[in-house]
Design a protein around this nucleic acid. Structure first.
Lengths: 257, 257
DNA sequence: CGGTCAATTGACGAATCTCAATCACCGTGG
DNA sequence: CCACGGTGATTGAGATTCGTCAATTGACCG
């Protein structure tokens, strides 16, 4: 079993205004995701960085472990600190449908604030560190802090938009288009989290997973990725991917709406 | 052009506590959707049934008219009073991908509260009556009334769950399964709104639309529906559908998770 | 009564799946 | 250090589902 620890290029600044007792102190995406609202000193009384306690704790998991399984109940909201994961549902015929691939900074369970039932499973794709927030605290903050409500709503709206994009992919687009779009989507999201160097980025996603996400078979994914490589659109090796011809890839996988 | 006005079976009670100056007075789904929270007297000061004014108004549209187009901006939340509609995105090759079919009582644009940008288009499927609420008022209510916040969140969570179901359909299931599931899903939702009589219900959905929703072609939808009919699973005629063999249909299209 | 559109049916073709074999890689145990 | 076993990627050949194209029918409508 390979331990695909996600060694993203680039290293964040270490010293920070935040207390050093929390792992958030040297989180590299803290300023770039929901945590920027969550941990800002101005935003609440109880939620202050530096004192990890009843409202927040951190955990780690090995790659390929399930973090949560569909049907469980939970009172916590998870946020990825480092590593990748994915949401999926297990179908009766042992196939998986991947609902989303999650990168550092993503909220794993954004609706857990309102719905304790977990409707899907989540599995670590690489070794993973994540943070758990107590739903009750976040809920309190939600109604106390308008900026937080807005930020959270924006999160949900963005996820909905993303799901619509997936529906378009699976409903109306060819294998080439789906895979190109998936790559471009990940590129964009990683870019926003400062996890791209030049045109390449960490890519711990097996073709089996791409297949489960795009509704294709691993064999077909292999054929398509191979053709992309031969066409000079991408390069990829163990755990990374580089976009060689961005316009070309966009011509195939861009959502031209 | 056929004017498929949705004549659902069953007629609601007419006299009601609500003022008669609002069309809501004899709305048949008022107790069964978000309006039950919105219009309840206990839930706010300004929002009271009977006085239609700055926070609410009603409109009507003919079948096949676009209510909203992707890219527009709007400050209002729409709720369907009567008739059917659908959300879709127009693809560059003139294909449509249907995102959801909307029945009476559904909120057309639940995220408009948080995001003025409209990301998809909405078209009336039948002649339609709908209600428009001012986002600003609803937002105020959201933070003032915890029950309303919960109800709205539940709405969004349910829609997300529904989208996940669609993703599973489009990603991992055959044409038969997708269509059976679509029928069963509509059956369930209509049931909850009290719009089913025995096993049959109004069904103003063309095969072209089913095709656009399931990611198939109209021809293939015709073949599948025909096979369902010949197998004694369903009966359908102009504007209605009857489920003859529910267990049989569920064996095909049930989400066996 | 002609025109349009949805539904249906058939024949054919294409995209993708299935099955199967091979190769490369990697960690493990001898 | 090396053989071994497992997994992922690749490639090929044939099967299947579904799409495309085309023609027909029937309903509705002006």
């Amino acid at each position: 079993m390979k331990s695909g620890s996600s060694q993203q290029p680039g290293h964040s600044t270490k010293a920070d205004a935040i207390g050093t007792s929390s792992p958030c102190a040297d989180c590299r995406v803290r300023q770039l995701n929901i945590c920027s609202v969550l941990l800002s000193a101005a935003s609440g009384e109880e939620i202050l960085p530096g004192k990890e306690s009843d409202w927040q704790d951190h955990k780690a998991t090995r790659a390929h472990k399930n973090i949560k399984s569909a049907g469980e109940r939970s009172d916590q909201v998870y946020v990825i600190c480092d590593g990748w994961a994915f949401r999926f549902v297990q179908l009766p015929d042992s196939r998986k449908q991947i609902l989303s691939i999650l990168i550092p900074g993503d909220v794993i369970t954004p609706t857990r604030l309102f719905d304790k039932n977990v409707r899907f499973s989540v599995q670590a794709l690489t070794d993973l560190r994540y943070c758990r927030f107590a739903s009750s605290i976040l809920r309190a903050k939600l109604i106390a802090d308008l900026a937080f409500l807005d930020a959270w709503a924006k999160l949900l709206v963005a996820e909905r938009q993303h799901n619509f994009g997936l529906l378009i992919d699976l409903g109306s687009r060819t294998a080439d288009e789906r895979i190109a779009h998936l790559i471009l989507d990940l590129k964009l999201r990683l870019e926003r989290r400062g996890m791209m160097v030049e045109r390449s980025f960490a890519f711990p996603v097996s073709q089996r997973l791409i297949a489960a996400a795009t509704g294709l078979t691993p064999e077909h994914v292999s054929r398509v990725m191979g053709s992309f490589r031969r066409a000079g659109l991408i390069e990829n090796g163990k755990g990374f991917l580089r976009i060689v011809d961005l316009p070309g890839l966009q011509r195939i996988g861009g959502l031209n709406l």
